[in-house]
Amino acid sequence: MDPFSNLVARLSRMGMVKSLGMRVEQDQTGLIAVLPFHNDLIGNFTIQALHGGAIGAFLELTAMAEVILKTEGGVQPKTINLTIDYLRQGRAKDLHARAYITKLGRRIASVRAEAWQDNESEPVAALTAHFLIGTEEAADEGRTADP
């Protein structure tokens, strides 16, 4: 199986991907994640804004997907930490995201991701995250010792 099909298969087995309703696509630049709008994603009825947690979960999964793709599905990335900047209100429409791997180390991956709605240059939210991508032994060390 090619890395992209492998990623799609892997994501389809993650309950959270299905609960959000997100999917991944490929364009000439690389992987692009899509979160089609549905009412469950709303965090504030009155102003029809997307829930920050839903946006955060989508960005985290986008970043994980990029890591899975780049490591050719060899590892299940485990999130160490993440920071989300909320830049604009997420409105009641589809959300798109792209992730960039800043550093793919032996055990740790540093990843950035951005989500937007109408215009890629006007992001709704930006994420910075670290993932453990090492072996189980390395992963255990990483949780207690320096990464």
């Binding site: 892997r10 087995r13 993650m14 309950g15 959270m16 299905k18 609960s19 959000l20 947690g53 839903a54 955060g56 979960a57 989508f58 985290e60 999964l61 994980m64 299940q76 485990k78 999130t79 993440l82």
Partner: peptide
């Protein structure tokens, strides 16, 4: 419904 790791079933950080 919110698992994040298909092998272990651990809940997703999201």
């Amino acid at each position: 419904a919110f698992s994040g790791d298909p092998d272990t079933g651990v809940i997703h950080g999201g």
